[in-house]
Structures are given as C-alpha cells and as structure tokens.
C-alpha cells in the first residue's frame, strides 16, 4: 500500500479553525506538494515512533497557528507558508519541539524527539 500524497486541506497558517483535521499519514520525501509549503515529520521517543501526540504549529512570534493529532505511527503534516516556524509536540510521555525555516513550496521535514 502506498501512502497517499498530502491533500490540500487544513491546517494552514491562519486556519486555526479546523473542523475535521485530516487523517495524519506519513509523507513520502519525494512527494509532490502541489505548490504548497508542507511541514511534515514524525514524533519519536527513545523507543521509536510515538503515536497520538498533539502537534502544534507556532509562528515566528510563538503564536498558535494550528494543531493536529499525530497518527498512531507518529506522523503529522501541516500546510504552511514561507517563514520561521516552531513545531511542538505534546504527549503524556513528554514534550518536544523543533524549528524550521521554510521558503519555496516543497516538503520540509521536521523530526521531533520527545
């Protein structure tokens, strides 16, 4: 079974409302992002992937932009724009975060350790 490409729905920066966050799946590194800035990755702990973390996208000012719950395999994905971002994961076993600077449309991979 192949992973589906990301579909162009939420959350995007500024779309913190999201009724119906899409199902979170792994994003292949050669995915066609269809002209969008995709910030994606996997949440891991010392024993491998951690599923179900709440992953928050924060803008350069640290303000909340969007939140998804990672898949059972720890995968998450955001549709962002050019800028500096912090991706922060919250889980019962611990929290972690990583920073990413995005530019042209494409995939920006952000692994997060908690």
């Amino acid at each position: 079974m192949t992973n589906p490409p990301p579909t162009p729905h939420k959350p995007r920066p500024g779309m913190s409302d999201g009724c119906g966050a899409p199902e979170q799946t792994a994003t292949p590194s050669d995915v066609d992002t269809q002209g969008q800035v995709v910030v994606a990755g996997k949440v891991s702990g010392s024993d491998g992937p951690v599923g179900g973390a709440y992953v928050r996208l924060l803008n350069a000012d640290g303000a909340f932009v969007g939140e998804v719950q990672a898949s059972p395999e720890g995968d998450f994905r955001f549709y962002a724009a050019e800028g500096d971002w912090t991706v922060r994961a919250l889980h019962a076993s611990g929290n972690g975060e990583a920073k990413v600077t995005t530019g042209q449309p494409g995939l920006y991979e952000v692994p997060i350790s908690i």
Binding site: P8, R12, G14, M15, C19, G20
Partner: peptide, 20 residues
C-alpha cells in the same frame, strides 16, 4: 475569534469545507 488571516480577509474558510 477567528485567526488573523480570516479576520483581515486573506482567508475565507478552511479549504476542505467549501460548503461552509
């Protein structure tokens, strides 16, 4: 209480909910 981008008019609604 919407996000700044919705407030300013840059965005209208989440793309996956066109009916709304």
């Amino acid at each position: 209480v919407r996000s700044p981008d919705e407030f300013t008019g840059k965005l209208n609604a989440p793309a996956h909910l066109p009916q709304e």
